[in-house]
Amino acid sequence: MAGARGRGRGRGVISWYELLNISRDAAERYRAYEQADPIACPNDGEPLREGPDGQGLYCPFDGWRPNGRRVGDGLTST
């Protein structure tokens, strides 16, 4: 029985500090993900492309832009 006690070490045994480090690492990665510039449209997943008006990235499918405006906004006068 003495051998059975030592068999589990290194396999599946994790300390609370290791879990805390995993949680902190995940939170750090999530913050970095949230702050990164988008690479795809959140509406349809279409990869973003350089806008036709030279004003940054846009979605060619629905015109979405990371700043909330759409391609063509501001072209019409009121």
Rank of each mutant, 00 (worst) to 15 (best):
M1K: 10
A2G: 12
A2T: 10
G3I: 12
R5T: 04
R5Y: 02
G6F: 04
G8T: 01
R9I: 06
G10V: 07
R11W: 00
R11G: 06
R11Y: 01
R11Q: 08
G12K: 07
G12W: 11
G12Y: 11
G12A: 11
G12V: 08
V13F: 06
V13L: 13
I14C: 12
I14V: 15
S15Y: 06
S15G: 14
S15W: 07
W16E: 15
W16M: 13
W16K: 11
Y17T: 14
L19T: 12
L19Q: 14
L19G: 09
L19S: 12
L20K: 13
L20I: 13
N21Q: 15
S23A: 15
S23I: 14
S23Y: 13
S23W: 13
S23P: 09
S23K: 15
R24H: 09
R24Y: 09
R24M: 11
D25H: 10
A26F: 05
A26L: 10
A26P: 03
A27G: 08
A27N: 09
R29P: 03
R29I: 08
Y30H: 09
Y30E: 14
R31D: 13
R31W: 07
A32Q: 08
A32T: 03
A32R: 06
E34R: 08
E34F: 04
Q35Y: 03
A36W: 05
A36Y: 05
A36I: 05
A36P: 08
D37P: 13
P38D: 12
P38G: 07
P38I: 05
A40I: 11
A40G: 03
C41R: 00
C41H: 01
C41D: 08
P42V: 10
N43G: 15
D44K: 05
D44G: 14
D44Q: 10
D44C: 15
G45R: 10
G45K: 09
E46T: 12
P47K: 02
P47G: 01
P47Y: 00
P47A: 02
R49N: 05
R49W: 03
R49L: 07
R49I: 05
R49E: 12
E50K: 04
E50L: 04
E50A: 07
G51Q: 02
G51D: 11
G51L: 04
P52G: 14
P52V: 07
D53I: 03
D53Q: 05
G54H: 07
G54E: 14
G56I: 05
L57M: 07
L57C: 02
L57S: 04
C59F: 03
C59V: 04
D62F: 04
D62N: 10
W64G: 00
W64E: 03
W64I: 01
R65F: 00
R65Y: 00
P66F: 01
P66R: 00
P66T: 00
N67K: 00
N67V: 00
G68L: 01
G68F: 02
R70G: 06
G72N: 02
G72Q: 02
D73L: 01
G74V: 03
L75P: 03
T76L: 09
S77G: 06
T78Q: 09
T78D: 10
